[in-house]
């Protein structure tokens, strides 16, 4: 085998080693982000549940029928429906962090939490901002299909309610067909900015992983070379 060919094969092997090392570093970094985001959402959802119960207890503790008071439906809804909404996302974040299903269930759960808070606040327009905040939080995953799941869940809830009970969404019983698009527009607008941002984040992670792998390979090479030189120097001293 010629020296040139040997050198070429060694270079190819070194490049493959760097590529593999970069892939390992990227996967490790990605898993770290996915797992830490799962943990953040688990705590966030527990916090939201406690907040929903507090909202129900403070603002609508009782329902009245004349002089007779009973615990308001909102309190039971916040307690039990709130618990049902967060149960699976929190359990998956705890037991199966970093997995694909976990983050998609979390995205669905987060959007359903938004819907619950909107109901508990009596449909206040300000509470609808929770949807947009949640979409921004979901972008922490840097995994754009998660944003699609969140959007589909919020749109489905809106669509079903719009069909079954249109006045609760549009205020009128027979809305024009395009009213749904008007409501969906701002969510799509928000997601259309967040998706490229997620993709850019992934690209940056890859670049970081490649640079890290190159630096690692370079420093290992230098260490190996200096070891050879040191050994040679030691041998020379020993001969004398």
């Amino acid at each position: 085998m010629s020296v040139a060919r040997k050198a070429l094969e060694m270079t190819r092997a070194a490049t493959e080693a760097i590529v593999q090392r970069a892939e390992t570093r990227y996967e490790a970094h990605r898993q770290e982000i996915l797992r830490s985001t799962d943990r953040i959402f688990a705590w966030l959802m527990i916090g939201q549940w406690i907040f929903a119960i507090a909202v129900a207890l403070i603002f609508s503790p009782y329902g009245w029928q004349g002089k007779v008071k009973t615990v308001h439906m909102h309190v039971w809804v916040a307690l039990f429906l709130g618990a049902a909404i967060i149960s699976l996302p929190v359990a998956l974040a705890w037991r199966r962090p970093g997995e694909l299903l976990t983050r998609h269930v979390i995205a669905a759960g987060q959007m359903l939490s938004s819907a619950l808070l909107i109901h508990l606040s009596g449909g206040r327009i300000e509470t609808h901002f929770h949807v947009f905040g949640s979409l921004a939080f979901l972008a922490f995953y840097r995994d754009w299909p998660v944003l699609v799941t969140g959007t589909v869940v919020v749109a489905t809830e809106h669509l079903i309610r719009g069909i079954v009970w249109p006045e609760s969404v549009y205020g009128i019983p027979n809305p024009e067909w395009w009213r749904f698009l008007e409501h969906a527009f701002w969510v799509v607008f928000c997601v259309s900015i967040l998706i490229p941002s997620c993709r850019r984040g992934v690209r940056d992670m890859r670049v970081m992983a490649e640079r890290g792998a190159e630096l690692e390979a370079l420093s290992e090479n230098q260490w190996r070379n200096s070891s050879v030189v040191d050994r040679a120097a030691a041998d020379t001293r020993g001969d004398r």
Binding site: V77, L81, A84, A115, W165
Partner: peptide
């Protein structure tokens, strides 16, 4: 099952509110 349970819960809430 979770999605179905949550959908049922929202159904009860919608019924109450409407």
């Amino acid at each position: 099952a979770w999605l179905l349970a949550v959908a049922g819960g929202f159904g009860v809430l919608w019924k109450y509110k409407s």
